[in-house]
Design a protein around this nucleic acid. Structure first.
Lengths: 326, 326
DNA sequence: CCGCTCCCGTGAAATTTTTTCAAATATCGA
DNA sequence: TCGATATTTGAAAAAATTTCACGGGAGCGG
């Protein structure tokens, strides 16, 4: 016998109308009452017709909020995630938002669709959004981003250690004028990488020779590298906050007649496919994408057994890929 | 006064039940009748409750079915489309499917979500899927793909003319041993490009010197180019079916000690951002992505006024970007 | 070619859900 | 403190969905 709204209403001690309202987003109903009704509904296995439609839509789906698709690292993440989810019988839904846009206006849509989980690689998550998701039982996973102000799951590469490795490697190669091209100052990846880098540099008795930001883009990286390399005293090594900027730096160096690693060493971060191409052979810190995505999928699949406000932060080690550029 | 199912039923000359069925996917109803009901419903502005909920979820969304995100051209399309839709107040939802997978199993989900439109850049659309979409009033737009067996909208670059342009350009540069590295033989882009290329070659009194396929990937392109260039008699020009393979060809050539354009000319197709990077300076046919996406958005926005089975195929001209590689 | 079965499509009716309405309660500003 | 306004609520009305039984092919065996 299929459960009906009437049964739920009786069980929860409310009217049928209230049950109906609990299921339609935007209805005027006491949030506490709605939650109680929803809870009873789950117990009885009741779903409203409207809800059933929504469930067909979001059956087994995971929603990804992605920005900055111009950086090949993110398509790579998207692709890997899509395949991993496919393997466990789920689908990937992507909200692609232009970089710099905040994601709050997506909240109603995301909540209405009730995905199994929300994966965020873009910009920052507002605490309101995080709270709303938790209340609606949607697990949130941040990828390649750490945010300490909201209690959500996060999976990232060990950016701090990566920064240290880069510095250690460059110093071992006797580099003495080491520059840094950053991404966007208030992102956790930028912060952690430069902090680790500086720390190791200091331990080796050096300090940063030059510093600039390139906004994680090719153009920004190119301009920054060009400026540094046309100074009277130029750096003999560059650590770039991501691969795109590192490749841009190599291009800028070549354009000025310098070659890697003889005239200067260049190290990137991410290990996007292009880093391995023979024209660049970029030395870089590889992010363990496959392992990161496996972690993400595990967190999502754990859904049923782990309480939703028990959050995990996974920091996975990166790996220095020594190629030709440093 | 809000229109009801009863009015629609009366207007369409069917029972209320039929109207309800027309709106629930998977119900047993004559497809023709469903279509008529849906048409009347649109006229009267009727929406079923289930549909209304779905509309909250997919309000103003466009669903994109994308594959092959390893080719930077598609993230570029995705990014551009996301921004264009954002500008007209819509959101982009992406179903990312691993290349080679067919999209038929997505049908129920996509239909249930009732997006405003479906944009397909991946693999091929089965006629069943296309038919189902039309019956449900979902406009379908193929991007960078032409399919004559199903009646859907399509927006693509003029691949035939692009192929011709490439051939004409290479012949004007006195190239006499012109090779071709294709993508995947049964895709429309591959077919149109090689057909146009061959045609122009023939008109210039030449024929293809060598031919291989690289599956649209870097590795495939690299291997194919390497094989051609280690033959006793090697080509003095290569037309690659997309930029990734062209960049791979440049890398393979460099690795063997050849340089472009002196030892051989290389032309690509797409004009992905990397093609303009100073280490490559790839001569290539630019796909007018912005214009293509504008067409897509126009087709979607025209939704209300143009009948759904009036389909348009837009073929936009590409542009030869002459850089350093040919 | 006939008859049999099975399955699809259908409207009426039963059931379920949503919406409307009016009353009750809470909230806010003066 | 009071009134005005907004929010929440259940009953009832309206609407939508599902069930049910039946009609009418299509396929199939005789």
């Amino acid at each position: 016998m299929k459960p009906t709204a009437k049964q739920v209403a009786h069980e929860a001690g409310v009217s049928i109308s209230a049950v109906s309202r609990a299921f339609s987003p935007g209805s005027s109903i006491d949030p506490e009452k709605r939650q109680r009704i929803l809870q009873v509904a789950v117990q009885l296995g009741y779903t409203s017709p409207a809800r059933r439609t929504a469930e067909v839509i979001s059956a087994g789906t995971v929603t990804l909020v992605a920005g900055d698709l111009a950086n090949p690292f993110y398509p790579l993440v998207l692709d890997t995630l899509a395949k991993a989810l496919q393997a466990v019988g789920r689908q990937l839904l992507v909200y692609a938002i232009p970089p710099g846009t905040d994601m709050d206006h997506l909240t109603p849509q995301i909540l209405a669709a009730r995905p199994n989980a929300l994966v965020v690689t873009s910009a920052s998550l507002t605490s309101g959004m995080a709270l709303a998701c938790r209340q609606h039982g949607i697990r949130v996973v941040l990828v390649n981003r750490i945010q300490r102000d909201v209690r959500v799951n996060a999976v990232a590469c060990d950016n701090h250690a990566g920064g240290r490795d880069a510095a250690t490697f460059l110093m071992a190669r006797e580099r003495r004028r080491i520059g840094f091209i950053g991404g966007v100052a208030d992102t956790s990846t930028h912060r952690d990488r430069i902090t680790g880098f500086r720390e190791a540099l200091q331990e080796g008795g050096q300090s940063l020779f030059a510093e600039a930001t390139g906004g994680y883009t090719y153009r920004g990286g190119y301009t920054a590298a060009q400026a540094m390399l046309t100074n009277k005293v130029r750096p003999d090594a560059l650590f770039c906050c991501n691969d795109i900027m590192a490749l841009a730096a190599i291009d800028a160096a070549r354009e000025l007649g310098f070659s890697t690693p003889d005239d200067l060493s260049i190290i990137g971060f991410d290990d996007i496919p292009m880093a391995g191409w023979t024209s660049y052979r970029l030395t870089t810190i590889r992010q363990p994408i496959t392992r990161m995505i496996n972690e993400v999928v595990d967190l999502i699949e754990a859904g049923a057994t782990v309480p939703i406000d028990e959050t995990t932060t996974s920091i996975l080690p990166g790996k220095l890929m020594v190629r030709g550029s440093a």
